[in-house]
């Protein structure tokens, strides 16, 4: 690990002024969990880390807030996963609480923040390997294609086949969240799905943030009447591990029929992935075990195995089923 200087600015303005002009040299730090890994692996060699946790201005306060607003709920980017998991977010947004409470380990969740979680780099073992130079690192080709690809993408991959690592992003996509971004030109807001970019757009970056831009937080729109949301995940190891696949579902039941259904899949594609066909097939239907079993198969339409990752197809289907059962209180066969 190379030596670096830790800068602790008091205002967002100071932080952004510092960061502009040298993106690889000066980087923001929040909880520092992913950054530390990147430094140790030699994947990032910044001279300065600009700590966002020292911000004391109004932006800093907004980044630490977690509160109801006129139009829903705002969650500041510096909230830790532990804080989100233990927060007073209403049941309609339970998927976010559950996602935050399931990621990583208790000690990591105490440091890791929402902003850092959305912007963490992928876990692909070719990308993370100190001796290997893959497409994502500026090399010629994706080494997972034709290589060891058990954890890689079944949807949306190519030319690079990573899966996006952020668990919170999956819940936020299902909850139709907006991301609030502050750049040199002022604030902007985008749907969370637009924060992420497929490799065919940019093989070396996973998000669309501009230079020096900071995520201030996310807003969750007002919940539909009777909205429920859940998060389901499968891991090889129940703690200290990333998901094999994960699913977040938000829906409401009106007059016995499913409405405003949103289904997001994680760890199956280079970005959080919306299962639009599943949403459409569910809308207007009465919830039932048979329906869920049938529509789950639509979640992976167009999926393609790279060789070792075909199991993700039944796996994510199983998770979609499990999530729907729980969201609609339909008991699973026991």
């Amino acid at each position: 690990m190379e030596p670096f200087t830790l800068i602790r600015p008091r205002t967002l303005d100071a932080a952004q002024t510092r960061a502009l002009g040298a993106p690889a040299e000066r980087v923001y730090k929040a909880g520092g969990i992913d950054l530390l890994d990147l430094l140790k692996e030699g994947l990032a060699r910044p001279a300065e880390l600009i700590d966002l946790r020292s911000l004391g201005d109004e932006h800093g306060q907004a980044m630490r807030a977690l509160a109801a607003s006129d139009s829903g709920w705002s969650v500041g980017a510096l909230n830790t996963l532990a804080a989100i998991s233990a927060s007073a977010l209403p049941q309609a947004y339970a998927a976010l609480r559950e996602a935050a409470g399931s990621a990583a380990t208790p000690s990591i969740r105490n440091s890791a923040t929402l902003g850092g979680n959305l912007l963490q780099r992928p876990r692909c073992w070719y990308f993370r390997h100190r001796d290997l130079h893959c497409l994502k690192k500026g090399g010629e080709r994706c080494l997972a294609d034709g290589g060891e690809n058990k954890f890689h993408a079944i949807l949306g991959g190519g030319p690079c086949h990573i899966v996006h690592p952020s668990t919170l992003a999956v819940a936020l996509v299902a909850l139709d969240a907006q991301v609030e971004i502050i750049g040199a030109e002022g604030p902007r807001r985008i749907p969370v799905g637009e924060l992420f970019a497929l490799p065919r757009v940019s093989p070396t970056a996973e998000n669309t943030l501009g230079e020096g831009e900071v995520i201030r937080g996310v807003t969750l729109p007002a919940a539909a009447a009777g909205q429920r949301s859940v998060y389901e995940v499968a891991k090889e190891k129940q703690s200290f591990d990333w998901p094999l696949a994960e699913v977040a579902v938000a829906l409401s039941v009106e007059g016995g029929a499913l409405r405003t259904v949103r289904v997001a899949l994680g760890h199956v594609a280079p970005t959080p992935w919306r299962a639009v066909q599943v949403e459409e097939a569910l809308t207007g239907q009465a919830p039932s075990a048979e329906l869920f079993a049938r529509v789950a198969a639509l979640a992976t339409q167009g999926a393609r195995s790279l060789g070792d990752n075909a199991y993700k197809i039944p796996l994510v289907q199983g998770l979609v089923r499990a999530a729907l059962h729980r969201a609609c209180d339909v008991p699973v066969p026991a």
């Binding site: 073992w125 070719y126 390997h129 290997l132 290589g147 060891e148 591990d241």
Partner: peptide, 17 residues
């Protein structure tokens, strides 16, 4: 232990993967 058939390197030489 996962060894890459292409490069002969161990791909998970850590306690994470």
């Amino acid at each position: 232990r996962i060894v890459d058939r292409g490069s002969g390197r161990m791909l998970n030489p850590n306690l994470e993967s």
